[in-house]
Nucleic acid binder design. Structure first.
Ligand code: MN
Ligand code: MN
Ligand code: ZN
Ligand code: ZN
Lengths: 138, 138
DNA sequence: TAAATTTTGCAACAATGTTGCATTAGTGTA
DNA sequence: TACACTAATGCAACATTGTTGCAAAATTTA
């Protein structure tokens, strides 16, 4: 696992630092998506808030994690699959936010449908976020 | 128009105040969705920031406006259609955010498709947010 | 190992959001 | 219309979230 993290960072031409390793491990260990605040709390006082912001930004740019839009002013982040790379995300799956436990799931096997837009509108990315009760909170 | 705003507030059992009227008029005049900051700027120093927060919250609760999730920590708000009422939103249309002009559109005639979820997951709301270029920025 | 490069932590700041409370404005009634 | 009652507003104070510049520390490269 440790090796996996280091390897992933190197594959993305990122220097291997403590914070990057720890934050990446946290993503790998966690069930659902993480908000900035989650990371700040889970990693204790280990890293500066600024470092976390910059790490998340770097990971998004490199295609290591992707963002999930929300209506509550707290963007969530989750690991990308292998197909994503620098500047080219391919996360075409549906996201689910449970009203019960608060978990945000990547439903990797539920793909976002194609949606016909009005004349002149050109889509570059489609986000589908469904909220409701998850299988544990049903 | 003024009468319409007053009427809408009364229909929702809300007292008719300056800030509510002005903010509602702003929504009616504007093409796309508005963020809190837009309202704060457009209405000048007319109202306290806190009043704007509380007004938006009230309007959402009453089903007068609905929220649009984003990935940039700035929830947008737009007018609901008539079918929405207190605690019961029925905004099943797709949203479009233009990368060019920044406008967020309610595509009222593009309905969100039904999406099959894994066993045990129960949907209560589905948000579809598409980004790309609008018909003016093609 | 040493130099070059990158990342980090800190400080300072800006923006955004929340709460309690006194004052003000709006509503229903006499 | 005037009054009492109720609801909304503005203000202050605070909490949270996000950004930038820069010196110190860590990592990479040679
Ligand atoms: Mn995902
Ligand atoms: Mn809408
Ligand atoms: Zn759940
Ligand atoms: Zn546009």
């Amino acid at each position: 696992m440790l090796y996996g993290v280091t390897d992933l960072l190197k594959r993305n031409q990122l220097s291997v630092t403590d914070s990057r390793k720890k934050i990446l491990e946290l993503f790998m260990r966690s069930d659902g998506a993480l908000a900035h605040a989650d990371i700040e709390h889970h990693s204790g006082t280990e890293f500066d808030r600024v470092t976390i912001y910059r790490t998340l930004q770097t990971f998004v740019e490199k295609g290591i994690i992707h963002t999930i839009p929300t209506s509550d002013n707290s963007v969530r982040y989750a690991l990308c699959k292998d197909e994503c790379s620098e500047g080219h995300h391919h996360d075409d799956h549906v996201h689910f936010m449970c009203d019960g436990c608060g978990t945000t799931y990547c439903l990797d096997h539920v793909t976002v449908p194609a949606i016909a837009l009005p004349q002149g509108f050109l889509a570059s990315q489609t986000d589908v976020v469904i909220s409701g009760k998850c299988d544990k909170c049903g």
